[in-house]
Design a binder for these strands. Structure first.
Length: 667
DNA sequence: CTGTGACCTG
DNA sequence: CAGGTCACAG
């Protein structure tokens, strides 16, 4: 019985949005000509874009070398080839936490992705010039690809190892039956979302890839900037501290080696606002100013660009056919490294792990719950020891590792802004921000369940939900849980929808449940006062803190089925009683709060009696009672399916569940 | 085949 | 309330 036909316009909200944002999606540096724009034409965060643009355009040996100088004791060096100090666990750790995989360059037939092109700086066997040339070619290729047509680039061209995994998964799941899982959704997306190439299937894929690549590029650029910033920071600190160890000394040498390239960019960027003399900063005050400015610029750039990409990506995901999008997400790395085993183990609660997973799988995959955190997961996400954490926080002096797991952010003390940025970029706007000082305590500490919640889980949830939401759909509400919700400075509120903002902030605080709790049951019972036949979409909407999968959905539906059962049994019972009692007129069968029938129902659904049952429920109950009374009176109950007519009436009497119920902390 | 609802049972 | 079964719709 399809009581709530899908709203054909569920994706309409995105339609215009997507088009409108298409050009905004790119960073200014990508959107515009790469080499011609004068600095003055940049506004707001565009300055940093210019900076980034120049940075990417300039050669990078110094940047790359800086990785080499990173001491191997760093918690998780960016692209650092595990050296003697790194244990295997750490390697796995940093593998997972790296946006790019360092194998990508070496193993991929095609040149490595943008990130790997830079991180893979350790290739002693290759002549340096050739290596650099190759890198440069790749980078330029990337830039061309981003500035040019979205469709003129093959996927593998700029993908790292995660791309490999993505393609693998894509192939695997293309064959799966999931294709037919959401036909409506698919149709909608195809009809509603225009794509650059006009070829819906492939172009969406490509667009998704493109977006991910853009995001990666931006992340990469930001990392570079952060590195430069930290190098400067490091340099100044060490200068005042008197340098000691050799590796650190190498660190501070780097900016000087690079003084004609990237650091020039920084100076260029600083020139307008700061007085920077000759080489580096002359005073601590200037240095702090520079830090502040860089933070601002970074934040602004992030808020402007990343948000756009996230939003665009989210929309693309929503509008895309049910491909294995989890791996197309820019943050897939955090999941992919877990390997199939971990994914499987997380889903093993419900389904045969060898089977292709329905969409719910992707929706729920990234959430780690204690009971499902098998060893496979623990291989991936290791909570660093307190020692590590403290040492981490003491490491800000050097160009600290830029690739850290969420856990590392979860318990460390004051965070660097760039750590937040990195975290944001790395794990997406929905990642766990526990430990970020600016968040209120309630948001600060997520339970372990949500510690490893990459943003694609939300994106997927958004996708899935929006596919079913119908009239409840709010454009990108969940998928756009974004850095808007963070307290980063200069965060731009692009989506003015207050409701969605509220939901975002709500969502940020969600502690996604693996299973249904007694509170959920209680909430469901109260919801029954409003809706007897909630669609699974409604259930998803009103249990946002529940990690929906097939089992959970079925269980919730089963609950309501049981509620109905009890409800109808009571109705029939009281209707028959009324007939036995000789009630001749249905008007004498009013259902009030004093009625025995109501008390029975209230006892069942509202045992604590702490909920004000809506009058509408009394009306519906009365109507139901009358229906039963009439049917029985007319001897319709001789028909085995006599109740069905009643069900048909009652199912139309559902009313909307109040918004308050959407709050995960409603009870 | 899958999702859903009703019904029955424990 | 959950499990199982059956029927039905898409």
């Amino acid at each position: 019985m399809n009581l709530t036909p899908p709203d054909q316009s569920i994706h309409k909200p995105n339609e215009g949005c997507l088009e409108d944002n298409k050009t905004d999606l790119m960073l200014p540096c990508f959107r515009r000509s790469m080499y011609e724009e004068p600095l003055s034409s940049y506004h707001n965060g565009s300055l940093i874009s210019h900076l980034l643009r120049k940075t990417i355009h300039n050669k990078r040996p110094a940047l790359n070398n800086s990785h080499l100088y990173l001491p191997s004791t760093s918690v998780s060096g960016a692209g650092l080839v595990p050296e003697s100090g790194s244990t295997m666990a750490e390697s796995a750790h940093e593998d997972r936490s790296s946006m790019s995989s360092k194998d990508s360059l070496g193993e991929s037939a095609s040149p490595g992705g943008p990130a790997s092109a830079e991180r893979m700086s350790v290739e002693p066997e290759r002549p340096l010039s050739e290596h650099l040339q190759a890198k440069r070619a790749r980078v330029e290729n990337i830039i061309r690809g981003m500035a040019g047509s979205p469709s003129n680039r093959s996927h593998g061209e700029v993908e790292g190892a995660e791309g490999e995994t993505c393609r693998y998964s894509a192939e695997v799941y293309k064959e799966s039956k999931r294709k037919r899982k959401l036909p409506q959704h698919q149709d909608h997306s195809h009809s509603a979302v225009l794509t650059p190439t006009g070829s819906p299937n492939t172009s969406k894929d490509e667009e998704c890839h493109k977006l991910r690549e853009q995001l990666q590029s931006m992340q990469r650029l930001l990392r570079q900037l952060q590195e430069k910033f930290l190098q400067m920071y490091d340099h100044s600190n060490l200068e005042s501290e008197e340098k000691g160890e050799g590796d650190v000394q190498e660190d501070i040498n780097e900016p000087q080696l690079d003084s004609s390239t990237s650091s020039d960019n920084k100076r260029l960027a600083n020139k307008d606002r700061m007085k920077v003399d000759g080489g580096y900063l002359s005073s601590e005050r200037d240095q702090k100013s520079l830090q502040e400015m860089l933070k601002c610029e970074l934040s602004r750039a992030v808020s402007e660009s990343v948000d756009m990409v996230f939003r665009k990506l989210s929309m693309t995901l929503q509008s895309q056919s049910p491909q294995p999008q989890v791996c197309q997400s820019p943050e897939y790395t955090s999941v992919e490294k877990r390997g199939q085993q971990a994914c499987a183990s997380e889903l093993s609660d419900c389904e045969d792990v060898s089977k292709p997973k329905p969409l719910e799988y992707y929706e729920s995959t990234p959430v780690a719950s204690p009971e499902h955190q098998t060893e496979a997961l623990s291989l991936v996400v290791r909570k660093p020891s307190l020692n590590q954490l403290s040492s981490l926080s003491q490491q800000v002096k050097r160009p600290y590792p830029l690739h850290q797991t969420p856990f590392q952010f979860s318990y460390s003390a004051p965070l660097h802004d760039s750590q937040i940025l990195e975290h944001l970029l790395k794990f997406g706007p929905h990642a766990n921000f526990a430990g970020i000082p600016c968040l209120p305590p309630s948001l600060d500490r997520s339970s372990p369940d949500s510690l490893d919640l990459p943003w694609e889980s939300i994106a997927m949830r958004s996708k899935v939900s929006s596919g079913h939401l119908g009239q409840h759909h709010r454009p990108g509400a969940l998928g756009q849980v974004s850095i808007d919700s963070l307290c980063l400075p200069h965060v731009k509120m692009e989506c003015g929808d207050l409701q969605s903002m509220a939901e975002r902030s709500t969502f940020m605080s969600l502690n996604i449940q693996e299973g249904l709790t007694p509170n959920h049951l209680k909430k469901a019972k109260l919801m029954f006062f409003y809706t007897r036949y909630p669609s699974s979409n409604v259930l998803k909407t009103f249990f946002p803190d529940v990690k929906f999968n097939r089992c959970i959905t079925s269980q919730l539906i089963k609950w309501f089925s049981n509620f109905r059962e009890f409800y109808y049994i009571q109705m029939e019972k009281f209707a028959r009683q009324a007939i036995v009692d000789g009630v001749s007129d249905v008007k004498d069968m009013a259902v009030t709060r004093d009625s025995e029938l109501f008390r029975a129902l209230n006892m069942h659904y509202n045992k604590a009696n702490d909920f004000q049952v809506p009058d509408r429920f009394l009306e519906v109950a009365e109507i139901t009672l009358h229906e039963f009374y009439n049917a029985i009176s007319l001897n319709k109950d001789s028909d085995p399916s006599w109740k069905k007519a009643i069900y048909k009436v009652i199912c139309k009497l559902d009313s909307d569940v109040p918004e308050e119920f959407k709050s995960p902390s409603y009870l």
